[in-house]
């Protein structure tokens, strides 16, 4: 318990070489932990997740997964190794049915295990009811659940979530957070980027505040919520 599952050291990354958005970020996600990353717009929160899953190039620093350095970072291999990722936008395949979306999530499995599908359907009943419908027809909240299901079906050790509450109704947000909690209780570590900083900090074990591509503050969710400087700069006063 509590071994580092993902460790990021001095990570420099961005979309174009020479224009680093992340300028030496450190982060640790331990086994079975929920870690939140908060910070203002443009701080590099989403970029950090994209860099960890290999969607954008890395220009400096190191990433370790289960203690081993990731040398050649290819997204599809990381997915097969057990790193799940739910992007903020384009998080489902709209022209595929819900069942086909889950099949794509289960791509690396040698055989189609009916049980893995049933587990997802048991968790998200709404997906079972609509399994033959195209994902493009789902509401924002349902899409988010499908995106979670697609990432979960391959039984990852860790899931990276990019603003899962963005654009959802308050009721759908509550539902999504309940599910994230449930997923975590099933033993999956969660790395969460959230715009809704207070909610994220209340919810997580530890939090990181990023600003302009660098670590600004780090601590337990509670400590950060009670830190006057963090409140003043990033959370706003009530």
């Amino acid at each position: 318990m509590n071994n580092p599952i993902i460790e990021v050291n001095g990570l420099a990354s961005g979309y174009v070489k020479g224009l680093n958005i992340l300028q030496g970020v450190d982060l640790v996600l331990k086994d079975k932990e929920i870690v939140s990353i908060i910070g203002p717009n443009g701080a590099g929160k989403s970029t950090l997740l994209k860099a960890i899953v290999g969607l954008i190039p890395i220009f400096g620093g190191k990433i370790y997964f289960n203690g081993a350095e990731l040398k050649e970072i290819k997204s599809y291999k990381l997915a097969q190794m057990g790193i799940g990722y739910v992007p903020q936008v384009q998080n489902v395949f709209p022209s595929l049915t819900i069942e086909e979306n889950l099949e794509m999530g289960n791509w690396a499995a040698k055989e189609r295990h009916k049980d893995s599908f049933n587990e997802i359907y048991d968790m998200f009943n709404i997906l079972f009811d609509k399994k033959k419908e195209r994902a493009g027809n789902l509401s924002g909240g349902q899409r988010q659940l499908l995106a979670l299901g697609r990432a979960l079906i391959s039984k990852p050790n860790v899931i990276l979530l990019d603003e899962p509450s963005a654009g959802l109704s308050p009721k759908a947000i509550d539902e999504v957070f309940e599910y994230i909690n449930l997923i975590n209780q099933n033993g999956v570590s969660i790395l969460l980027v959230e715009q809704n900083a207070k909610r994220a900090l209340k919810f997580c074990d530890r939090g990181y505040v990023l600003d302009q591509g660098r670590n600004a503050y780090t601590g337990s969710g509670e400590d950060l919520l009670n830190d006057d400087k963090v409140v003043e700069l990033y959370l706003g006063k009530l």
Partner: peptide
Amino acid sequence: GKAMRAVRDSSDLASVSGINS
């Protein structure tokens, strides 16, 4: 065939799902 349609929808999402785009 399904993976082709998946890559058509989003090659990034296909990659992070474990598909070699």
